[in-house]
Design a protein around this nucleic acid. Structure first.
Length: 211
DNA sequence: ACATTAATTGTGT
DNA sequence: ACACAATTAATGT
């Protein structure tokens, strides 16, 4: 199915599980900005990320957004796991940040696999743990740090997730992710540029000096 | 190459 | 937060 499946998902050791995934799952490609799941939607498949990047944002009814965390290859959307098992509406939105390929597993196998395969349980639990860690970092950033520090953390996190040193993004997009306003982001970015560290250009932020 | 327009970024209040 | 200015990139002629 996927040649480097084993390196991507080292938790899946059982040949039986592997075979079963092969049988019931299909791979799908997504392009940037595709919405995997929106606020209030229901999910019917669990995506295992093979390549690309997905961002998970909290969204309120007024259209405010706030970046929660990224999903990288080898990971899955843990929130969809819980909410699909109880068939609840989604509280979050998942947007493709970079063209991505995913293995789509229908949710009907979840209950069964959790019981049947230790490897699957382990994978889900590990995923929970790392996602929670990401989330705690985000909460920490929001609760205890000023926006300028948050912005810097955001830039670093994003660069790391995308594995780049030069980010392509507009101030508007950044403001959305941080649930702030474009003007504020522009001003803070300019400060960061003056104080050394980053270089600004249209649609791009160079972080190479920081990393 | 130049003019026009749209998008992005900067700034004052 | 809003209004507007300035700059830059994209597109048409």
């Amino acid at each position: 199915m996927i040649n480097d499946f084993k390196t991507l998902f080292p938790d899946f050791n059982s040949a039986e599980l592997f075979k079963e995934i092969n049988n019931v799952a299909s791979t799908r490609e997504f392009v940037t900005d595709e919405v995997l799941i929106d606020l209030g939607g229901y999910i019917k498949t669990i995506p295992l990320i093979v390549s690309g990047l997905v961002k998970i944002v909290k969204e309120d009814n007024d259209g405010n957004e706030l970046l929660m965390y990224y999903l990288a290859p080898g990971q899955t959307c843990t929130v969809s796991l819980t909410c699909c098992m109880s068939q609840q509406k989604s509280e979050i939105k998942a947007v493709v940040e970079e063209d991505a390929k995913m293995i789509m597993v229908p949710i009907k196998y979840m209950d069964e696999w959790m019981i049947k395969y230790k490897d699957w349980r382990k994978f889900v639990m590990n995923n929970y743990r790392t996602r929670f860690e990401d989330l705690f970092q985000t909460i920490d950033s929001i609760a205890f740090h000023k926006l300028d520090e948050r912005l810097l953390t955001y830039l670093k996190t994003k660069a790391k997730a995308k594995k780049v040193t030069i980010l392509k993004a507009t101030h508007k997009e950044i403001a959305y992710d941080l649930n702030s306003s474009r003007e504020v982001v522009s001003r803070l970015l300019k400060q960061l540029e003056k104080q050394g560290g980053i270089e600004l250009g249209r649609n791009m932020i160079d972080l190479s000096k920081l990393l």
